[in-house]
């Protein structure tokens, strides 16, 4: 791409956060104007508008103006205006951020289906990690304009490249604490400082060779804990701690255990949440293969 190429010739279509529909044009007019740079014959324009309208289910709205549409409908029109262009790359700039939670969930699925059907590249900017995790084939996590990690949602979640990514992804933030690695025999262990619980890190796939005395940050995702009995997998750390308080979200919940002066967030299943009593001791078991370790200095994965 030459630096002077003008936006309309770049083969891009963009959906704006504020939708940026043309207020004086009807929905049909908005969609047609999207095609005005491409010299198409009338039939082709009509065909594309009809196709996009049918795909987005906005056919009954074609003769309305943006002011007469709801937020979700405007959103669809904005997507439609990008779709009709039939370009290779679509840019979505936080398209769902203006919608309410329910509509956002619906539209998320719609866009995902659309992406699946069209098989085109979509660059989708979002602050919502749920959107990112559910819709993306690949995610680039950025902090202050610098890319922290590029990978599939699973990679981002399972093997975060640094502490920023680890803390950013996950609906309940990861428990992170600082500790020192100890090599004893053929085992790699670390101690949770405030409770003295020993964690067996032998099954962790280190990128760098661990050494005794190495300062590390250990990350434990709340949802990887199991309560009471080990839930498959080899138990690597067992915390017996009093329950400080718990949050219920209907289907499941989070228990916050008092570990000296800090809190350990632990995910609790629906079946177990009713049995939790404040102050009662809870046994939380962490499996051996789920640790995330970061260098205490550089904060990147080791």
């Amino acid at each position: 791409m030459s630096p002077i190429s003008i936006p309309r010739d770049r083969g891009l279509a963009m959906v704006f956060q504020s939708y940026a529909l043309y207020p004086t044009k009807t929905v049909r007019g908005n969609l047609k104007f999207g095609l005005s740079a491409q010299r198409l014959d009338r039939g082709e324009i009509e065909r594309r508008v009809a196709w996009a309208a049918q795909l987005l289910r906005i056919e009954p709205l074609l003769d309305r103006r943006p002011a007469q549409l709801s937020g979700g409908q405007r959103q669809r029109v904005a997507i439609g205006r990008a779709l009709v262009k039939n370009v290779d790359v679509f840019l979505f700039d936080e398209p769902l951020s203006n919608l309410d939670a329910k509509l956002r969930t619906e539209m998320r699925l719609e866009i995902k289906k659309l992406h699946h059907d069209l098989k085109k590249t979509v660059v989708y900017v979002t602050h919502d990690q749920v959107e990112a995790m559910t819709m993306a084939t690949r995610i680039a996590v950025m902090d202050g304009g610098v890319i922290q990690q590029i990978g599939t949602p699973d990679e981002i979640y399972e093997r975060p490249a640094n502490l920023f990514v680890a803390r950013f992804v996950g609906s309940q933030p990861m428990n992170v604490f600082e500790t020192t690695i100890d090599l004893t025999g053929n085992r790699v262990v670390a101690t949770h400082r405030s409770t003295g619980v020993e964690m067996d890190l032998s099954d962790y796939s280190f990128i760098r060779q661990p050494a005794t005395g190495m300062k590390v940050l250990v990350g434990l995702r709340p949802e990887h804990f199991s309560i009471g009995r080990p839930n498959g997998g080899k138990p690597a750390a067992i915390f017996d701690l009093p329950l400080r308080y718990s949050e219920k979200t209907g289907s499941d919940g989070t228990a916050f255990l008092a570990a000296a002066d800090e809190l350990l967030a632990v995910h609790v299943d629906h079946s177990q949440i009713g049995a939790l009593r404040d102050g009662a001791s809870v046994r939380a078991i962490f499996p051996a293969d789920r640790f995330n370790l970061f260098d205490a200095e550089t904060r990147s994965r080791i």
Partner: peptide
């Protein structure tokens, strides 16, 4: 005029 509208129009038509 909201800048997004003119940006969208420049991407759509450019004329």
């Amino acid at each position: 005029v909201p800048p997004e509208i003119i940006n969208a129009a420049i991407m759509d038509s450019g004329s």
